[in-house]
């Protein structure tokens, strides 16, 4: 081996070692853990079993949590997409100064800690929070609205937190659309709404898919916001995994749940990539 190859090996070694030691090894340990039996009171046993997976996949309690998590992911993804797309278009079509300012405003919330932001939403959304107090004092509502400790609160919080990711991925996707294509469609007798639906959206599809995957995956694995805005009763997969480990001390069940969440995530990414490949055939050289 010549010196440049040694150099190459040397350059990737630290990262590789770190990854092997701190990611793959714990994952392996967790995998083994998820296959151990568990007895309440005595803790993790030494027998091998797949009961942890079976119970998660058959128990109505877990199935409801998984369904709720996926539904939450879907709602938040759609919400960020619906809010993010017009915003991305606006950014793209405004003057450079406005563009910079808007992008800064989009990024700005990311600089604030997620706990603080979630707490901020609690102040706004709680039964005697800012929103309910204002509406009540205006005489618009008699009883406080249920904005927290349910789907509504978690969706509002997560949508605000993940919107920047969607926007930042949509802007370059829309930027890649050739300039005259829209004019060409208009010239070919397509109305503006039709041009948007048949030209702009399909050409932005790569960005829409990437952004959606990212927001979906972040949402279904989010812990802090669902815990704070969903409360102890609104359980999603991430909070349940946390509870299995930290409250119930049922590590095998938590590990199994974690692996199922990972499997769902990987399956979705794979599926979305297949979908993207089919619908963006002409976009790849």
């Amino acid at each position: 081996m010549n010196s440049s190859r040694w150099l190459g090996a040397g350059l990737v070694l630290p990262a590789t070692a770190l990854l092997l030691l701190l990611f793959l090894a714990p994952t392996l340990l967790m995998g083994l853990m998820s296959l151990r039996n568990y007895t309440a009171g005595t803790g993790v046993g030494s027998d091998w079993t797949i009961a942890n997976y079976l119970s998660v996949l058959t128990d109505g309690f877990y199935i409801e949590i998984m369904a709720r998590t996926l539904f939450l992911g879907l709602v938040v993804t759609l919400a960020t997409l619906l809010l993010g797309f017009p915003l991305a278009l606006f950014i793209l079509r405004s003057s450079p100064a406005v563009q910079t300012l808007t992008i800064l405003l989009v990024i700005f919330p990311l600089l604030c800690n997620i706990v603080v932001r979630s707490f901020g939403w609690m102040v706004l959304l709680s039964p005697n929070g800012v929103i309910n107090e204002t509406l009540a004092s205006l005489g618009l509502i008699a009883e406080p609205l249920d904005l927290m400790y349910n789907l509504t609160g978690v969706v509002i919080g997560l949508t605000q937190i993940y919107l920047p990711f969607m926007v930042l991925l949509l802007v370059p996707a829309l930027q890649n659309i050739p300039a005259d294509v829209e004019a060409a469609a208009l010239g070919l007798r397509a109305s503006r709404p039709r041009t948007f639906a048949t030209i702009i959206v399909p050409l932005a599809l790569p960005g829409i898919i990437t952004g959606s995957i990212l927001v979906f995956v972040l949402t279904i694995s989010a812990l802090v916001t669902p815990r704070m805005l969903g409360g102890p009763t609104y359980k999603v997969m991430a909070t349940q995994i946390y509870d299995e480990f930290m409250t119930n001390l049922n590590w095998p069940a938590g590990a199994a749940l974690a692996f199922i969440l990972t499997a769902i995530t990987l399956g979705l990414i794979w599926g979305a990539n297949r979908l993207a490949a089919r619908y963006t055939k002409g976009l790849q050289a």
Partner: peptide, 22 residues
Amino acid sequence: LPPNRRNIGLVFQSYALFPHLT
């Protein structure tokens, strides 16, 4: 009139073909 109601044909320097369509 908006462009879609003018019955024109447009040819651009950049071709402006729709890349996602055959």
